[in-house]
């Protein structure tokens, strides 16, 4: 899932793809993303017409439905600026999944072009902008979940680079870190038994590491982890990397 042929960054204006999850549930993550980017001197444009990246139908096998959404997304994110998305999963959909389902379509090149402009947030900050330091402070022990859709990309390393750069942050390892949290989109509802068993294992490992917060670059994983933990009656504090970065800038204490 390498996004190796992407366009280099020129200028300091980006389009924000906020993701449907942030649009519906996690507004603070999208807001944090804006604040973090603006802190770095980046002008953030939010195309109002945006909806979803198209991944649910793509993963479900309904590629015709997915392509309809992707075509809408391609139209919505017209232009030349980089598209930044606070999700490794939606980013991978743009530069990998969408290209796969458009292989035999005439407008595949439009989709590829958007893919080359699309950046996951941490990857954009570290590898796009070249930022490897972070100001402010955040006193917390952090367990970081490398979401599966950032396998084979530079996002996981980039996120860890940023976390390590924040004063006060201590990153703890946990067991079987490479394993999936069990979300998997529609998988979580069509395979509820296996999905929650996977999630429970992940939670056990994370809890054993005793972090203050469980952080990821993908709210989908965190929605699953947080929801599962809450249902068990043992809630766990989940945050998006963007929230940690923003709170550090404000030197806000960890919750």
């Amino acid at each position: 899932m390498l996004n190796s042929e992407r366009k280099p960054i020129t200028g300091k204006r980006v389009q924000l793809m906020a993701t449907c999850l942030c649009d519906a549930f996690y507004d603070d993550v999208a807001a944090a993303t804006v604040e973090v980017l603006e802190h770095l001197g980046v002008e953030v444009v939010f195309p109002e017409g945006q909806t979803c990246c198209g991944q649910p139908a793509f993963n479900g096998g309904d590629w015709a439905a997915s392509r309809k959404v992707v075509r809408h997304t391609v139209r919505t994110f017209a232009g030349e600026e980089p598209v930044v998305v606070p999700s490794g999963s939606c980013a991978a959909m743009m530069f990998h999944g969408a290209v796969l389902e458009f292989e035999k379509e005439r407008d595949v090149s439009d989709v590829e072009a958007l893919g080359r402009r699309t950046w996951e947030l941490a990857d954009f900050i570290v590898n796009g902008l070249g930022v490897k330091t972070w100001s402010g402070r955040y006193d917390a022990t952090v367990a970081f979940h490398r979401s599966c859709h950032s396998r084979g990309t530079q996002s996981g390393e980039a996120a860890l680079t940023l976390l390590a750069a924040i004063a006060g942050v201590k990153v703890v390892e946990f067991g079987e870190g490479e394993q999936c949290c069990g979300f998997g989109g529609t998988f979580s509802v069509s395979f509820p038994g296996i999905s929650t068993a996977m999630g429970a294992l992940k939670l056990d490992h994370v809890r054993a590491a005793r972090p203050d917060v469980f952080v990821s670059g993908d709210m989908s994983c965190m929605m699953h982890m947080g929801g599962l933990a809450a249902k068990e009656g043992k809630p766990i504090k989940t945050l998006h990397l963007a929230q940690v970065l923003r709170d550090a800038l404000k030197s806000k204490a960890a919750p």
């Binding site: 599966c148 396998r151 998997g184």
Partner: peptide
Amino acid sequence: KASSLCGA
């Protein structure tokens, strides 16, 4: 379908 598409 029996995959979260985790890529492992």
